[in-house]
């Protein structure tokens, strides 16, 4: 029988009530290592250039370039560390929620019934720290695909199993 009862908006499960869980602290290390690697490479390249280039103007500009580099580096680090606290996720009965972003905060929700497939990927570094990235794909190219970085490998597997079981149930 078709029913069409009015929905009481207040009685709906609210996103505010969801307790979002932070991702593994270990992942901060990976972020830091990646950044350190990138910036040390950049600064090393600058120093290398300093000893190789003989042109006068370059030596004048060198300190400016270096200070810009260091400034960006510090800014990036502070940003990354502050933004790290914003990376949170939650699994509800019917959907997966992921929140991220310091300057632009976003909360994405993907209903489990809409999940097309799941993927766990682990880079070389994340294997060292026993972490994993869980990717959740929906249909269509424009879809909001979720990518939850820095989960404990065991936890990622657990979530993956739970979600795939749920997805297969609905079919």
């Amino acid at each position: 029988m078709f029913t069409n009862q009015q929905i009481n908006l207040d009685s709906l499960p609210s996103i505010d009530d969801v307790e979002l869980k932070p991702i593994s602290k270990q992942y901060l290390k990976i972020i830091v290592i990646n950044r350190v690697f990138f910036y040390s490479l950049l600064i090393a390249a600058l120093f290398f250039a300093k000893f190789m280039v003989v042109h006068e103007n370059f030596h004048m500009a060198f300190w400016y370039l270096l200070s810009v580099c260091v400034f960006l580096c510090v800014l990036n680090f502070v940003g990354a560390i502050l933004a790290f606290k914003k990376r949170k996720y939650a699994i509800r009965e019917e959907d997966v929620i992921y929140s991220k972003g310091l300057l632009v905060n976003s909360i994405s929700a993907v209903p489990i019934s809409r999940i097309q497939h799941l993927e766990i990927s682990r880079s070389w570094l994340s294997r060292r720290f026993n972490l994993a990235t869980l990717k959740i794909f929906t249909a269509g190219e424009s879809g909001i695909d979720l990518r939850i970085d820095g989960l404990n490998y065991a936890e990622a597997k657990q979530i993956n199993d739970f979600l795939s079981k749920k997805v297969n149930e609905t079919d």
Partner: peptide
């Protein structure tokens, strides 16, 4: 609908 996202910058917050 496949997914929903809420976005907010710090100025908007």
């Amino acid at each position: 609908i496949q997914s929903v996202e809420l976005k907010q910058s710090i100025f908007q917050k």
